[in-house]
Simulated assay, not measured.
Amino acid sequence: MTPPLSLAEIEAIIHRGVPLAAAWGVRVLSASAEEAVLELPHNPALLRPGNTVSGPAIMGLADMAMWAVLLAGSEGRDESLTANMHVNFLRPCGPGPISATARLIKGQGRSIFGEILVRPLETKDVSVHVTTSWVRGRPPDGPAR
């Protein structure tokens, strides 16, 4: 049996697979096959007028957080693709840092469903609620590690 991936390994896979994640400084704070938490640090390049993190950055972080769950549950060999993302902006996140907590709702079969809550890092107040569906892809022949 292969040992679970470390947080650093999941983060490295995300940074390779989505180079913007590395450029933005995205960090994996926790990850399991059920839930993952990612952090987007304060970055002036990602702010919109009003001194708050922009929608595209928030959506990118949410997508990466869901992928972290899938990577943790597949020994880093996930080839799933985002099929749909529904985003509700409830309140501004502020300038960051922000966190995205992704939770797997349905992971069996070809269709995958998840929920992501985005909030300023040091608060429980949800700023953005995301639901997402993914289509499971065929895993590659070798490990991603």
Score class of each variant (00 low, 15 high):
Met85Leu: 15
Ile116Met: 06
Ile112Ser: 05
Gly50Gln: 07
Pro97Arg: 02
Pro92Ile: 07
Asn51Lys: 13
Glu79Asp: 12
Ala22Lys: 11
Gly76Gln: 04
Val87Ser: 14
Ser6Trp: 04
Trp67Ile: 12
Glu34Met: 13
Ile105Tyr: 02
Glu115Val: 05
Gly60Val: 09
Val37Thr: 14
Ser6Met: 12
Val135Gly: 06
Trp134Pro: 10
Ala83Met: 03
Leu7Val: 12
Ala31Gly: 05
Val135Asp: 01
Arg27Asp: 07
Arg138Phe: 04
Ala83Val: 09
Pro97Ile: 02
Lys106Leu: 02
Thr2Phe: 10
Ala12Tyr: 04
Ile10Ala: 07
Arg138Thr: 13
Pro4Ser: 14
Ala57Leu: 08
Glu34Asn: 12
Met64Asn: 13
Trp24Pro: 04
Leu5Lys: 05
Gly25Thr: 09
His15Val: 02
Ile10Thr: 12
Gly60Ala: 14
Val128Cys: 08
His42Asp: 10
Val53Asp: 03
His15Ala: 08
Asn51Ile: 11
Ser74Leu: 00
Ser32Asn: 01
His86Gly: 10
Lys106Gly: 04
Arg119Gly: 06
Lys106Ala: 09
Ala102Cys: 03
Ala21Arg: 02
Ile10Asn: 12
Leu117Gly: 07
Val26Arg: 01
Arg136Met: 07
Gly73Asn: 11
Gly17Thr: 06
Ile14Arg: 03
Asn84Leu: 05
Lys106Phe: 01
Trp134Val: 09
Ile98Ser: 04
Ile116His: 03
Val26Met: 06
Gly96Tyr: 02
Val126Met: 09
Ala62Trp: 13
Phe89Ser: 06
His86Leu: 15
Gln108Asn: 04
Ser80Val: 02
Gly94Lys: 09
Leu7Ala: 02
Pro19Cys: 08
Val135His: 03
Arg48Gln: 15
Arg27Ala: 15
Pro44Ile: 11
Leu70Arg: 14
Ala23Ser: 03
Arg91Asn: 00
Gly96Phe: 01
Gly109Phe: 02
Cys93Ile: 01
Asn51Gln: 15
Ala31Gln: 06
His42Val: 00
Ile14Trp: 01
Cys93Leu: 15
Leu104Pro: 12
Val128Leu: 04
Leu117Glu: 14
Pro4Gly: 13
Thr123Glu: 11
Ser32Lys: 02
Cys93Gly: 13
His129Leu: 14
Ser6Thr: 14
Met85Ala: 08
Gly94Cys: 10
Arg103Met: 02
Thr2Met: 07
Gly73Pro: 14
Pro139Ser: 12
Gly109Val: 06
Leu20Ser: 09
Arg27Ser: 13
